[in-house]
Design a protein around this nucleic acid. Structure first.
Length: 140
RNA sequence: CCAGGGGGCCGGGCAGCCGCGUUCCUUCGACAGGCUCAGGAUGAGCGGGUCGGAGGUGCGAGGAAAGUCCGGGCUCCACGAAACAAGGGUGGCGGGUAACGCCCGCCGGGUGAGGCUUUCGGGCCGAAGCUCAGGGAAAGUGCCACAGAGAGUAUACCGCCGAUGGCCCCUAAAGGGCACAGGCAAGGGUGAAAGGGUGCGGCAAGAGCGCACCGGGGGACUGGUGACAGGACCCGCAUGGCAAACCCCACCCGGAGCAAGACCAAAUAGGGGUCUCGCGCUGAAAAGCAGGAGUGUUUCGCUCCGAGAGACCCGGGUUGGUUGCUAGAGCGCAGGGAGCAAUCCCUCGCCCAGAUGAAUGGCUGCCGCCGCCGAUAGGUCCUUUUCGAAGGAUACCGUGGGUGGACACAGAACCCGGCUUACAGGCCCCCUGGCACC
RNA sequence: GCUGCUGUAGCUCAGUGGUAGAGCGCACCCUUGGUAAGGGUGAGGUCGAGAGUUCAAUUCUCUCCAGCAGCA
């Protein structure tokens, strides 16, 4: 209830440009993004999926397989920095962008990954990319 | 200076651009209240609240934040008292502490450079340091496989002897033989372990059988708060190991954990609780008796239940938010005091993360650390010397330059005290031994 | 974050202070014209790692390392 009021207030302020990029926090959103387009690059995998008017959103996933907490946190920070730089210009409106960390994402040169992210976003906006993965078997 | 050992501390620094979380301040906007004034709707002013934007300001991961192995705070649950049992834990003594399985000091054992002694097999003493889950094995039970004759009431395979008794030979006597009865436990052998050790005497052979030394047991007494140490005197020696096997002794422990707990919103299903009426037998009633349940058990007690109806409240499944949430057994290479020390007391100063798909990052420059190269001020060495210096060598010291490389282990999640484990590199202190100099 | 549990042959599991086993699987042989089934023989183990207690540890104790499950 309060939230709707807040968003209405934000709409009534045309002074500030509304490029609000929100963060995915729900597990269900991440699972849904799994059904979108996949664009794999050496340091990361980009998932993109339209979200029916939820705005420009992003999320980051780094699994325990990649390393310990220090490595995972550093990778998430670098990804956030990449997305902060790329999404306002190159991101697609009303789309969830999910980056999945791979082992190269910690040592790969930042500028090189920035270029790769641009290419991946361009490919995704043109509808290119791998088919979604088949449903995972419920291991564990 | 070198080698070995122990302890403590730090764990990159500075700067630029762009970003993140949060405290406070200023300002802007939205929302819903409040108060005052005027009033017909309504308007004006004041002050704070929530949310959002902008600007400024302060702060912003660790020594292990890790493992979750101990001990507490805090919160909820349980709780009538005492005794007891069960389960778990700790284990030399004294001190420190909120407490501990932690820390300090001391005691005892082990190791130990080395020293003393020797019958050359060995025995004894023992610095610094390191190390020890270090109560009890004549309270009891149990176990000690295999091997071995024998493994805890010791035993006798090979072996030794056969003095005494027996048999045989030779006999005047002395003597000799057999290994039958029997004696022995020195030597061999088995084993992790064989029921004190060495030597001399002794003996048929042997044996603490006797003696000397060493070891061991008991121990008046002395010292010490105590663990314990010393020890007159007595005992030939009489009882191995395992308690991280059961157990005994002394001491300690209620359970769960911030996903504890509290509140708000949303959501909905027929489980639980409270109150009223009613309620086994005797009795008019009060009460008594019987049954069942609960409080770990017992005792003394206490409480509740019965049979349904009505009313009210909460739970179950489903998710979001707020709070708990950070000023505390706090920190200080500040000063003073007590103590060998751990630590404690007084004064002064300081504020040092509060995130929640989880805040410290991205890019860059300089410096710092290590190696290599050239041989440039200065040092050092050699040669020449007109004693001003010149030339050469060197990379050990220092300065400057170029180039390459390394920068670890690791991320708070309620908070503290420890332990354990991981860790590139660097700094400081102490102890022991050796070498040099005074 | 908190709390439990489990690590033994390729797989699933026993086991106990003294030589480590079973089933399936694997290899070879027999049987068959050939295969399956059946029978026989055999290989394969740092008992998760490291310390400690003990004469002796897979077992007992401690510390690490993996993996799994539960808790709003």
């Amino acid at each position: 209830m309060r939230k709707t009021k807040d968003s209405a207030a934000g709409d009534s302020l045309p002074i500030y440009p509304l490029v609000t990029i929100t963060v995915l926090t729900k597990r269900a959103d991440f699972l849904a993004a799994n059904k979108g387009l996949r664009n794999a690059r050496p340091g990361f995998v980009l998932l993109t999926r339209p979200n029916r008017g939820q705005g420009k959103r992003f999320g980051i996933t780094v699994t325990k397989k990649v390393g310990n907490a220090v490595v995972r946190n550093r990778m998430k920070r670098r990804f956030r920095e990449l997305l902060r730089d790329a999404l306002p210009e190159e991101g697609m409106a009303d789309t969830d962008h999910v980056l999945i960390g791979r082992s190269g994402g910690i040592t790969r040169d930042y500028h090189r990954m920035r270029g790769e992210l641009s290419h991946a976003l361009k490919a995704a906006s043109e509808g290119k990319g791998d088919r979604p993965r088949p449903q995972r078997k419920p291991r564990k």
